[in-house]
Amino acid sequence: MAVHSPRDPVKDTSLTATSESPGGRGQSVKCPVLRARGITKSYKRGIWPRRRDLLVLTGTDLELCAGEIVGLVGENGSGKSTLMKILVGALDADAGTVETAGRVGYCPQEPLLYERLTCEEHMQLFGVAYEMNADSASASAESLYDSLGFGRWRDSQVVELSGGTKAKLNLALALLPDPDLLLLDEPYAGFDWDTYQRFWDITAQRRDAGRSVLVVSHFVTDQQRFDRLVEMRDGRAWPR
């Protein structure tokens, strides 16, 4: 196996700084950490000659500050996932600007995973993707196995996992690098109650550490968990 090479020391320092003293960074990261302006998006649907545009976003503005948990609500099909994808750069908007500060972690609505790789291999691969050093990646992975409670599936391939465990891995890959900004698209669909509670514990910890979280949610019963709610309606984001 390839020997793990020591990382660039400069990178290492800042990495530690990121994970250990977020408060210090809080001085510079104020508001906003995410700023989206005038996002429009339409999908092309159908086959010619019955091709038509479906307008989903009509000029969405959204801002997120450091240390905020914001809930993104709205009917099915109101464009929440579309907005998320544009914010993270997975989809191109027709118009508008997106600006972000720091690292972004994204948890897609559908688990996007490799069927024949194990949980552990996913963690390692994405650890490399985020340019984390091997030790901090594995430490972060261990704590996620622990807090989300799927450690005993670490060596199972994704095809063998239950839906809920897939969702856990899907979320864990977004949390792995402890990003400054978390964009979570219905992350807890399929979680059991315990895991659901632990998810909110993790989120609260992140907030206290100055991270920002944008969560697509349908459970408005959990309103008190959010600092504020934003509703998608008519292709725009409205405060609620």
């Binding site: 510079s28 104020k30 906003p32 950490v33 995410l34």
Partner: peptide
């Protein structure tokens, strides 16, 4: 686009 809110030196390089 990257927001300028984070000074370049403070931003994690990764």
């Amino acid at each position: 686009r990257h927001l300028s809110a984070v000074p370049a030196g403070d931003r994690p390089p990764n």
